[in-house]
């Protein structure tokens, strides 16, 4: 699916976008706030601009290195297959969904299903055992943090919190 070479270029694009964002913000938001010019007291843009330029130069250097050097060393190895990628993608997807629902439904409604889903992705066979395990992990940790460390876990829109 993705070889090392493509990933290398992907990262270069990623940093190029970041540099672009830095300049875009300097010319819009920071200019509007009046913090893009002046001396060290007022100019908040000079330093990030300098860092962005520095990264840009390094990036060009890296691009040159990738261009001239890497194709020869990188022909067969490291091809990531779809099969290999399934688990991490599912893991990240479930985790993202969990975080999205966490604020809405709260910790107690979302955590056990999230763990069950992760267990299944990791290859566990569906059984009562994994459900119990998942619930045990979720509620033991909640008990430790809420009752002993006085952390209030997200209650969601229903305000679901267990008064331990």
């Amino acid at each position: 699916m993705l070889g090392k070479k493509q990933v290398n270029w992907l990262v270069i694009v990623f940093f190029a976008i970041i540099i672009a964002v830095v300049f875009q913000q300097i010319h819009t938001s920071m200019t509007e706030q009046g913090i893009a010019t002046g001396g060290p007291y007022d100019n908040a843009a000079a330093y990030p601009r300098a860092i962005a330029i520095l990264i840009g130069l390094l990036l060009m250097l890296q691009a040159a290195v990738s261009w001239f050097r890497e194709p020869t060393t990188d022909t067969d190895a490291d091809e990531l297959t779809m099969k290999q990628a399934y688990r991490p993608l599912a893991l990240l997807g479930i985790f993202a969904l969990y975080l999205g629902l966490l604020g809405v439904l709260g910790y107690h409604l979302t955590t056990t299903p999230m763990i069950i889903a992760l267990l299944l992705v990791c290859g566990a066979r569906p059984s009562l055992r994994i459900i119990v395990t998942a619930a045990l992990i979720a509620f033991t940790l909640a008990y430790f943090f809420e009752a002993h460390l006085k952390v209030v876990l997200p209650g969601g829109i229903y305000g679901l919190n267990i008064p331990w």
Binding site: Q25, S29, A44, I51, Q62, V65
Partner: peptide, 30 residues
């Protein structure tokens, strides 16, 4: 080395996000 320096520069940039101590302006807060 180049990759390390790019990563380091990325960290330096990340550190600029938020309220600037000097101008009290907001940087990259969107």
């Amino acid at each position: 080395l180049i990759k390390g320096l790019i990563s380091g520069g990325f960290g330096l940039l990340l550190a600029t996000i938020g309220t600037d101590e000097f101008s009290t302006g907001y940087r990259f807060t969107f």
